[in-house]
Amino acid sequence: MLTLFRLVSAWPLALLHAVGAALGWLSWLLSPTYRRRFAQNAGLAGYDFGQVRAAVGHAGRMVAETPRLWFGPPVPMQWAGTEAVDAAYAARRGIVFLTPHMGCFEITAQGLAERYHAEYGPITVLYRPARQPALSEVIETARRREGLETAPTTLAGVRQMIKALRAGRAVGLLPDQVPPDGMGQWASFFGQPAYTMTLAAKLALQTGATPLLVWGERLPRGQGFRLRFQPLAEPLADDLETAVEQINHEMEGLIRQCPQQYLWGYGRYKQPRKL
């Protein structure tokens, strides 16, 4: 599998996105379960299929662009809202970067690592280890890069992230990812109860780190990506339960900026798996 990823990584980004869009629509056509969940999730947010149909192609683009991002030459990146990032790094209290399953979340960590690690140290990103050994090897190889460290979704990984924040460095995670049972709380997401991780809020509250929002906009015609940053609308609440609800609301706001690039097929409202 590693050989295949390296081979595909040489393809132009525009070609990968074209192939990915076709694969996204093929998956949508072949899976009634996917179509149903896509429509249900989008409907809960107030969108009909016509408004978010582009998200079908973007889901495929996300998969197809991954080999290029992991093993290929650099891709063009634009930056928006870096004033908030620069100020948070300069404060040296640590940063918790939060992004939903939207656009290209892989590029956000890579971009931050490339731009800031020399002065402020590496960014540590949370990831769920792959169950397939071959895919696990690919992921571990791909993410061994300067300025980027990974933390597994284990107690050891949480300790690693806390240590990084207390050293004034940055961490990144997807707070709309459904955590295992016992590691989250039920909170509103587009008006529907969704099992939501408490880790993002805990990291910020326990360490005093600055939470910042980020998402990687996928530009048309293979032109690259635009990394968009912004602070929370209001300071994070001191109460954990309220803070979790607040982060969900912030994720909703980001998604509404570009619902055509959100993964509406993600099982956001599923029951949490047992540990």
Rank of each mutant, 00 (worst) to 15 (best):
E114Q: 14
Y47P: 08
L205D: 07
R68H: 12
T153K: 11
Q160Y: 05
P179K: 08
E65D: 15
W264T: 01
V75T: 13
Q230H: 02
L219M: 08
G253F: 02
L112T: 08
W215G: 01
F71K: 09
C258H: 10
E250F: 02
L205H: 01
C258V: 12
V125P: 03
T99P: 00
E149C: 14
L23C: 06
L69T: 07
R36T: 11
E140T: 12
A170Q: 07
Q110G: 00
K163A: 14
G222N: 10
Y89K: 05
W264Q: 05
A109Y: 01
A142E: 08
A170W: 02
G147I: 02
Q271K: 15
V19M: 12
W79S: 06
R37P: 03
R268N: 04
G57P: 09
L174P: 01
L148D: 00
L44M: 13
E65R: 07
S136L: 11
L213E: 02
G265N: 12
T33H: 12
E250V: 10
L26K: 12
R93C: 03
T33K: 15
G184R: 04
A90S: 07
L173C: 08
A54C: 13
S27D: 07
Q271V: 15
L112S: 05
A22I: 10
G224T: 10
R273S: 14
P76D: 04
R131A: 14
A130L: 08
L26P: 09
W264K: 01
L205F: 04
P152E: 08
P74N: 04
R128W: 03
R53T: 02
V125C: 12
R35T: 03
G157L: 15
H17W: 00
H117P: 00
Q261D: 06
L219A: 09
G224Q: 08
M251G: 03
F105A: 10
Q40R: 13
T242P: 05
F229A: 01
T108W: 06
V56H: 09
E217Q: 15
V75D: 05
Y195P: 12
E149T: 09
L155N: 15
L4M: 13
A10S: 12
F38T: 07
A39K: 11
P73T: 14
Q177W: 06
A151N: 04
V214D: 00
G60S: 06
R35I: 01
R93K: 14
Y269S: 02
G182W: 13
G46R: 03
T3K: 10
P73I: 04
M102P: 02
L155R: 15
R68S: 10
L173N: 10
E137R: 15
L2W: 12
L174W: 11
Q257R: 14
A200D: 05
A237Q: 15
D176V: 06
V52S: 09
F97K: 06
Q132M: 09
R169M: 13
G224H: 00
V8L: 15
L203K: 01
Q185K: 11
E250N: 01
A91C: 08
V85Q: 08
G81Y: 11
L219V: 04
P193R: 08
L30G: 05
M77K: 10
K274R: 13
Y47S: 01
Q51D: 06
Y127D: 05
P220D: 11
G184D: 06
P12E: 05
W186N: 12
A42Y: 05
A109H: 00
E140N: 13
I123A: 04
M183V: 02
M197P: 00
V244S: 02
